[in-house]
Design a protein around this nucleic acid. Structure first.
Lengths: 122, 122
DNA sequence: GCTTGACTTGGAGCGCACTCCAAGGCGTTG
DNA sequence: CAACGCCTTGGAGTGCGCTCCAAGTCAAGC
């Protein structure tokens, strides 16, 4: 089983542009090519893209994803470093989530004020 | 009581550059000036900056903050529109928080795999 | 066999949100 | 009263993450 870049874009929610960009920028593991040079994505690539998407959408910068991808591409032996990157990121995400939750409470409060005013004036 | 731009930057965690930029871009309510033309920030400005910061750091784009600021600057009468912006944003933030929490769980899972492997190989 | 359309590349362009610069004004301190 | 530092402005520059373009290759359908 292997997918074209368009099919992979469809399945991952990224654009073909972005998939090429990620590859150029060192975020991908090795992507196979057909005889004619077209990219062929495997199940493993889809899993990896999902991981990259998770890291990106929790705010990890491209350059950090690249550091992580570099380690994975180097193969076994550097698991401690990978773990280190993931654990640091996890703490960052937890802190971000907590901050966002607090902001959400403040926004809720503000909404409550407007809704209260609406009721009073009604 | 009024603060200089430097003091306000200090207190809000924004830079003086950013405070000027926000004002130019229509994100601020009216900011007073001293006789010499220097900005003077009041308690009300600090509260407003905090709100802007909450909206920004929960992912509201500058242009939407500006729309909201425009309404507040226009004065009473458009509370329903303000409420609309805030409620839409609240739903967005909730969705983002949920997605981020799911990504966090997946990252936790990945970390668990690395830690498990570490223990096995130890 | 020719068209159509998806694919390739290097490189340019874009939108967002700042971030900084140059040139000049003001005002407190020694 | 001179120096120093903080302030002002319009406008240019930066970094990030895509996003798109031009020119060309290749594969499949009519």
């Amino acid at each position: 089983m292997s997918l074209t870049i368009a099919e992979t874009a469809e399945r991952t929610g990224l654009t073909a542009h972005t998939l090429r960009y990620y590859e150029r920028d060192g975020l991908m593991l090795t992507v196979d090519r057909s005889a004619s040079g077209h990219r062929r994505y495997t199940e493993r690539d889809l899993d990896w893209i999902q991981m990259v998407t998770r890291l990106r959408s929790t705010g990890m910068p491209i350059r950090d994803v690249r550091r992580y991808a570099d380690l994975v591409r180097q193969g076994p032996g550097n698991e401690a470093q990978r773990l280190d990157i993931l654990c640091h990121h996890r703490e960052q995400v937890r802190a971000d989530l907590e901050a966002a939750a607090e902001h959400l409470r403040a926004i809720d409060h503000k909404i409550g004020i407007y809704e209260g005013a609406g009721e009073l004036s009604a």
